[in-house]
């Protein structure tokens, strides 16, 4: 399973300050730590970035990829900032992933950008009518996103469908709905559609010391259902050890006594 390191986010105070001061060091260190811990992508969440978003995303992409040889998951609702990130992205380390398009009309432009810059794109199964009620509704939205992707010239193998993980502490039923959706998404195409989740959404709102426990147990179930990628914290060793262990169970990794050390 692909790990998309979530640590570089405007929500984190240290990252936000570095962004504002244009101080590359904290951002580069956090990216490097996630790379070393086994991340395959680095998520770069700059939020809505309404002011100087283009400049910020360009600076982030260049600063990170100067030190870390991984593709980036560009995470902003501001399309022009996203485009600036795609232009600056160094494809030598892999193709960028756009986070994200959805069924909301203002997010359609992300597909246009994906086609224009040969990037991959996350399709969040969120529509105009608020939160999807269940797995079936998520699939209906996914089908619309897939149809639209083809219209825009984005191949289906470049789409990662995201069932939208909701917090278990207030919307408990959705834990099962999202798991079921991960399974059903794969059946929407042959070869199977790729899937992705924002894992830590599941533990939003729970006491801090319980978040890792909740994340890692939910990840095990998601991997069992065939999840392709997760935006998660690679610096959480228990979480990474769970990932490695479940990959042994499902046959993606060959067992050896030292499998946790590789």
């Amino acid at each position: 399973m692909l790990v998309i390191g979530e640590k570089i986010s405007i929500i984190a105070k240290k990252v936000r300050e570095a962004m504002m001061k244009r101080d590359p060091k904290p951002v580069q260190e956090l990216a490097a730590a996630q790379w070393k811990a086994g991340a395959h992508f680095i998520d770069v969440n700059i939020g809505p970035a309404e002011e100087k978003g283009e400049d910020l995303m360009k600076w982030m992409a260049e600063s990170i990829q100067e030190k870390v040889h991984l593709p980036l998951c560009l995470d902003t609702t501001n399309p022009s900032a996203l485009e600036a990130g795609l232009k600056a992205h160094n494809n030598q380390w892999g193709r960028a992933l756009i986070n994200s398009t959805s069924n909301e009309p203002e997010r359609f432009i992300m597909l246009e950008l994906a086609a224009k810059y040969n990037a991959q794109v996350i399709g969040l199964t969120l529509g105009k009518g608020g939160l999807p009620a269940d797995a079936e509704e998520r699939c209906a939205i996914a089908a619309e996103i897939m149809g639209r992707a083809l219209e825009y010239g984005v191949p289906l193998e470049d789409i990662y469908l995201d069932p939208l993980i909701l917090q278990v502490c207030t919307m408990q039923d959705h834990a099962m709905h999202a798991l079921k959706a991960v399974k059903m998404f794969q059946e929407l195409n042959d070869p199977p559609m790729k899937t992705v989740v924002g894992l830590s959404n599941i533990s939003n709102g729970v006491p801090k010391e319980m978040r890792s426990l909740i994340d890692r147990n939910y990840l095990a179930l998601l991997i069992y259902e065939g999840l392709t990628a997760a935006i998660m914290n690679p610096l959480d060793k228990d979480l990474m050890d769970t990932l490695k262990t479940v990959e042994v169970f499902v046959g993606k990794t060959l067992y050896a006594h030292s499998y946790l050390e590789t």
Binding site: L254, Y255, A256, H257, S258, Y259, T262
Partner: peptide, 10 residues
């Protein structure tokens, strides 16, 4: 095969 992998790691 598991020992083969383990030996390579060691």
């Amino acid at each position: 095969i598991n020992l083969a992998k383990q030996l390579n790691i060691l």
